[in-house]
Structures are given as structure tokens and as C-alpha cells.
């Protein structure tokens, strides 16, 4: 995971959830106010747009914390 991708994911969290707290691999929906199923859609859309990738249905479901996001981004070569 490159430093750039970490920074970009942090920015996306700021963007989608207005979350400015400490972001680590274990950060999960319970830690981020507003990370509900509706906002999850915005999160996935923004990830897709920013990294120019397309996630599958399973990957959408797979994201349970920030670490999962990184795993998926790595899988897509971001």
C-alpha cells in the first residue's frame, strides 16, 4: 500500500463522511458517524471514481473496515 493511496483514502473519508478523526486499518462503520448503508453507496462510488476502478457486488459487501478497503484497492492495482 503506497503512501499516496493511504492519503487519498483519508481524503475520501473526509469528503464522504466529513470524518477528520484518526483513520487506521481497523476503523469500522461504528467509529465513523454517518457510515450507514446509504452512505456506504457514496463511499463505494467515490472510491470507484477516484481510483478509476469498478467494484463487484461481493466487494461492496466485503468492506467492513478501512483495512478491507486497502485490500480491495491493492487487488485492483491502485
Amino acid at each position: 500500500m503506497s503512501n499516496d493511496v493511504r492519503a487519498e483514502v483519508a481524503e475520501i473519508f473526509e469528503d464522504v463522511f466529513e470524518f477528520e478523526g484518526d483513520l487506521n486499518l481497523k476503523t469500522a462503520p461504528d467509529d465513523v458517524p454517518g457510515w450507514d448503508s446509504l452512505k456506504h453507496i457514496a463511499l463505494v462510488t467515490t472510491l470507484e471514481q477516484n481510483f478509476d476502478i469498478s467494484l463487484s457486488m461481493d466487494e461492496m459487501h466485503e468492506i467492513q473496515n478501512v483495512g478491507d478497503i486497502h485490500t480491495i484497492l491493492e487487488r485492483h492495482g491502485a
Binding site: 448503508s37 446509504l38 453507496i41 462510488t45 470507484e48 471514481q49 467494484l55 463487484s56 457486488m57 461492496m60
Partner: peptide
Amino acid sequence: DPKMWFYGRIPYSA
């Protein structure tokens, strides 16, 4: 975006 349709009945891609 079919996954978005199945996930939340979102009819159009972003």
C-alpha cells in the same frame, strides 16, 4: 450499475 441496483435499488450509475 447493476450492483448498486441490487444493493439499494439505485436505478442509474453515478
